[in-house]
């Protein structure tokens, strides 16, 4: 097997199982992520890829390795600021009766997004309110990590405020473990974003950040269409900073109404009649 047929066969595998697209030009990424797996088996990259046809375990590892999303605490800062400064106050007003918020961290990877949101809710929700964060990913290895809530020193050193580190984590050996109080609010579910969304319920805020870029246009549109009923009428959808609904077909672009909070674009269901969010122009402190 040559390098280019190996690449073609791996990208076909990932596409079949996840609908994610690894175009030519992403060879470096495939190589970087598969080399350690091949080395662990004592094989060269091409030999390793040839073996995948017969080895379901290794196939799962490859899918996991190639679908891992780079992530960090409070990634990009501004969406989290928009969440606490504008979305949360609006939702607190509109959920007076149920006093409960449901949030979806889609393609949650190692869970840093989900736990970043949990930390903010822990600080900003008034007494008597409850919340659930549903964290989904296609990688079962990642879901195990979210469940364990353990992060290395290298991971907690990056982007996590020291006050949050000491408040929400405990040192366990070389790792830092997130407090049970937050872990019990995060529900972990295995989900392929390209497959049906069953048994998830609906959400007040959906974080769908930096994952659409991996799908081809048709899948991307399909996902955004099926996200509509997953969001409460007055809820918010957040995309990655390089992602938008603007390049979608007219009906889909119109179904998602873009609403700017400071520098952060949010997307809301256009059909739902509702008043605008208060403090629309807030950029936060």
């Amino acid at each position: 097997m040559t390098t280019s047929t190996a690449f073609a066969s791996v990208s076909a595998l990932v596409r079949r199982e996840t609908s994610m697209v690894y175009d030519e030009g992403k060879e470096y990424l495939v190589e970087a992520r598969l080399n350690p797996l091949a080395a662990a088996r004592g094989l060269g990259l091409e030999e390793y890829v040839a073996r995948l046809a017969f080895d379901a375990d290794e196939r799962r590892k490859v899918v996991d390795a190639l679908t891992i999303n780079e992530t960090s605490w409070f990634r990009d800062h501004t969406p989290y600021q928009a969440f606490t400064d504008a979305m949360l106050p609006a939702l607190l007003e509109r959920r007076q009766i149920t006093r409960r918020l449901r949030i979806w961290s889609a393609a949650c990877s190692s869970g840093q997004e989900a736990y970043s949101i949990a930390m903010l809710l822990d600080q900003h929700l008034p007494p008597g309110w409850s919340y659930e964060i549903v964290a989904t990913d296609i990688s079962t290895a990642m879901l195990e990590r979210v469940r364990a809530g353990r992060y290395s020193q290298v991971e907690v050193n990056r982007g996590l405020p020291a006050t949050s580190l000491v408040r929400y984590f405990t040192r366990v050996g070389r790792d830092w473990e997130i407090t049970e109080r937050l872990r019990e609010r995060v529900t972990v579910k295995h989900l392929n974003l390209a497959a049906p969304y069953v048994g998830l319920g609906s959400f007040d805020v959906i974080w769908l950040r930096n994952v659409l870029i991996y799908f081809e246009a048709a899948t991307k549109q399909d996902i955004l269409r099926r996200m509509l009923p997953m969001l409460a009428d007055d809820g918010y959808l957040l995309l990655g900073s390089s992602e938008t609904t603007l390049d979608m077909p007219a009906d889909l672009a119109a179904a998602w109404q873009r609403e700017q909070i400071g520098r952060v674009p949010t997307y809301r269901r256009a059909s739902a009649a509702r008043s605008l969010t208060p403090s629309l122009t807030s950029t936060g402190a």
Binding site: N157, R158, A162, V166
Partner: peptide
């Protein structure tokens, strides 16, 4: 953990643990 707590209580605003990557300082 207790050292980080002590430093913050004494007035440190942030805390980076060595070894670190340049990104950690920038973040």
């Amino acid at each position: 953990q207790r050292q980080i707590v002590r430093a913050l209580a004494a007035g440190a605003h942030e805390y980076v643990i060595k070894p670190f990557t340049p990104d950690a300082i920038v973040d």
